[in-house]
Amino acid sequence: MPSLKDLRNRIASVKATQKITKAMQMVAAAKLRRAQEAAVAARPYSERMGAVLANIAASTAGSPDASPLLAGTGKSDVHLLVVCTGERGLAGAFNSSIARLARDHARRLKAEGKTVKIFTVGRKGYDSLRREFPNEIVENVSFRSVKQISYSEARSVARRVLEMFGAGEFDVATLFFSHFQSVIAQIPTAQQIIPAELPTAATVNAEAALYEYEPSEEDILADLLPRNIAIQIFHALLENAASFYGAQMSAMDNATRNAGDMINRLSLSYNRQRQAQITKELIEIISGAEAL
C-alpha cells in the first residue's frame, strides 16, 4: 500500500505528463492544418499532370518504342519498394502500419521468388525494416532537418529512383505511404509508380487529337514521365505529413485522456486513505477518552 506521500508524488507526475501530451496534441493539430493546406495546394498540379499524361499516353499507345517508364522493362523480377514513413514516433500506429504493409508485400514477393530491394524515406521505416531485411535496403534517406516538405525533396528522391531504374537495377517500383482520409483514419497504401499506372483516359476526346505538339509527342512524354514520378512521390510525402500529424493528434488525445483517468483513480485512492487515517485517529482519541 503506497503511502499518502507516494500517492501525492504520483499524481503530480501524471499531471505533468498530461500537460506534455496535451501540448503535443495542440501542436500536432496546428501542424496538421498546415500539412493539409499544403496537400490541397498541391492538388491542381498533380490533377492536371495526370490528365495531360493520360491524353498523350493514349495517343502514343502501342508505339513499339514506348518509354520503359510507361511500358515497363518487360520483366518483373526485381521489385523496388519505396517506403515513406515519418521521422518521429509518438504517432500511434502510423509508422508501424506503413512498415507492416511494406513487409507483407516484400514477403509475398519473396515467396514468389522475386528479388526485393527497399528504399526507405524517413528514419522510422528504416529502423523497423532493417531488422528483417538487412540486405535488401539499398537506399535510405531521411528529411529530419526539413520542416516543411517541398518539391525539391521529392525531386531528389525521384532522381535517385530514376538513376537506379536507368542502371537497370529494378523492374517494378512501388510506393508505400499513408493516405490521409481523415484525422482518425489514415490508410496505408501501396501505389505502383514504375511502370506508370495511368488512369485509363476515358476522356480521350476529339480535342486531344487537335493538339499541336512542340517538340514531338514522344519528346514531351519522355520529359513528362520522370517528372510524374517526382510528382507522385511529392504527393505521397505530403499525404504522409498530413497523416502523421493526424495520427499524432489522435494518439496524444488518447494519452491525455488516459492520464486524466489515471489521475482520477489515484485521487480517489488518495482521498480514501486520507479519510481512513482521519477515522483511525478519531477512534484512537475516542477510545482513549473512554478508557479514563
Binding site: 480535342e207 493538339y211 499541336e212 512542340e214 517538340p215 519528346d219 514531351i220
Partner: peptide, 17 residues
C-alpha cells in the same frame, strides 16, 4: 523549348515544354 511564344485568347491547342 523551341522559342518564345506569345499566347493570346483563342490560341490553337498546343502543348509544349
Amino acid at each position: 523549348t523551341e522559342g518564345y511564344l506569345t499566347v493570346l485568347a483563342n490560341h490553337a491547342p498546343l502543348m509544349t515544354t
